[in-house]
Design a protein around this nucleic acid. Structure first.
Lengths: 141, 141
DNA sequence: CGATTGTTTGGAATAGTTCCAATTCCAAGT
DNA sequence: ACTTGGAATTGGAACTATTCCAAACAATCG
């Protein structure tokens, strides 16, 4: 429950990759943790600016890229719409609501993940798999 | 084995959507059927030009879009790279080879598809699901 | 402190795609 | 056959998301 756990783990992860912890990276990451609605880079930019008014969009892109490298954040692409960012590290699929444009995380049980990987013929060695649904979500959450 | 089956089914599908069969649409479709290597719009453009030298890139985009609407072709997106087009209508996943950039079709047994759809909680109604692997493929095919 | 390396910044550049207005093509009705 | 209206095509401009770049800034190390 320490208030700076997230930022500590960020610092740690960055250090592991030989990178520095900076205010920009901290705030970008905290913005993602605070509101997990799969924001685009522009949306992150807008949110971060309230805390760091002089940050540039290029830096936001840099920070997001860095966080993806460190595996603290996942980049989510849906068709050709802007990349969205997601700090959920558990294995999960995405559900894209066609009406609202909202993206939901769908937890993936290991058993399902395993079965999906079974479909690969010999000679295919997957390092990751992405599952994306598109459809309509009844507004529960 | 009739040589014009494909073009007939194209004409049919287009008519079903109230659209016309045109040389441009025919050739774009036939190019996709001829070489199923998931070409980009630019690649389709290049191939079609050998047959229809005056076609424009905009028309290629239009035709591809039309074929996708008619459900004769699937648009395949991988991260933010250019959209690729695929005339394989059976349910299948895609495997993206990180070294070569090549895309492979992976057949999806109905059972797996069913299990994947099981992960959706109540209230989520999926009209389609996309499964994309990324990794390394031993050059078998 | 001074040098080196890493980071941020604003703006220019790029890539892929879509938009648009003008033309061309067809099909149906006379 | 001739017209006319809608559909399709075309070339080029516009757009969007992102990356690149060179300059400024910051932090770390010797």
């Amino acid at each position: 429950m320490s208030p700076h756990l997230a930022s500590d783990s960020l610092t740690q992860r960055l250090a592991d990759s030989g990178l520095r912890s900076t205010p920009q990276r901290e705030v970008v990451y905290s913005v993602l943790l605070r509101k997990r609605d799969h924001p685009t880079a522009e949306e992150v930019f807008a949110r971060v600016k309230t805390e760091l008014p002089t940050i540039s969009l290029a830096t936001v892109y840099n920070c997001l890229e860095t966080l993806v490298q460190c595996e603290l954040v996942r980049a989510v692409n849906f068709e050709r719409s802007p990349t969205r960012y997601c700090p959920n590290l558990r294995p999960h699929a995405h559900f894209h609501d066609e009406q609202t444009g909202r993206t939901y995380d769908i937890d993936l049980p290991p058993a399902v993940l395993a079965e999906v990987n079974q479909v690969l013929p010999a000679g295919f060695d997957a390092s990751s798999v992405e599952i994306t649904f598109r459809g309509q979500a009844r507004a529960t959450s």
